[in-house]
Design a binder for these strands. Structure first.
Lengths: 102, 102
DNA sequence: CTGGTATATAAGAAATTTCTTATATATATA
DNA sequence: TATATATATAAGAAATTTCTTATATACCAG
């Protein structure tokens, strides 16, 4: 097992292939923040922001970091930051990844 | 002009975020071929293959190359090969690309 | 006790993407 | 002329993704 590198590549690309999710990553690089603050900053509803964030978290592109003791007080405020991913795609790499797992 | 690098990134990622389109690129890296041959090889209908190929061509990820004088004869057989693209994605690059064209 | 901050999720609508089927054209070979 | 090769596209069905609205919980300040 431990295969299907190809399927993982597709889901990672799908996670990235969305303007809102790219903006979320861009915003969190500058400064890690809560889903609620992110929603306000981006002019989006909280549920939509939460949804996109969930997709990014599931793919490991964004992670929850330990509380900055900044916006303190409210119920368990979760701060998010982008993971340190690096994705390099060329035709040859795509072929190599797809060949690994028929 | 020359703007909206961000939108181009999204459409490129969308073009890549599909298992069939990744398989098409992988197959064409090994050997450039016609849409028809590609469809047969992949076990897909010609119209579906043509559709995916069209999307890849539109984004410049696949290009038509000059006839190999190989499968000669039939009506204007068009041979395709992947373009030499290179896409490197990190959180910082995403931020930089999105900042260029607010 | 109301409003603002903060979380999470479900249901369904809306939009987009994906895929099939049908149509049309054209050539070379058996 | 029938078959296999080869192209292109349109119409609509099917599937998936995206987004809104509603619901529920919880804490703190005024």
């Amino acid at each position: 097992m431990g295969k299907d590198e190809a399927q993982k590549l597709v889901t990672t690309l799908k996670a990235l292939a969305n303007p809102i999710r790219l903006r979320i990553i861009a915003s969190l690089v500058d400064e890690p923040k809560h889903a609620y603050a992110l929603a306000k900053e981006m002019g989006l509803s909280y549920p939509l922001t939460h949804l996109h964030l969930k997709g990014l978290r599931k793919m490991g592109l964004v992670k929850e970091i330990e509380h900055e003791t900044k916006t303190e007080g409210r119920p368990s405020a979760r701060t998010y930051a982008p993971s340190k991913f690096e994705l390099l795609l060329t035709p040859e790499r795509i072929r190599d990844i797809l060949k690994e797992d028929g």
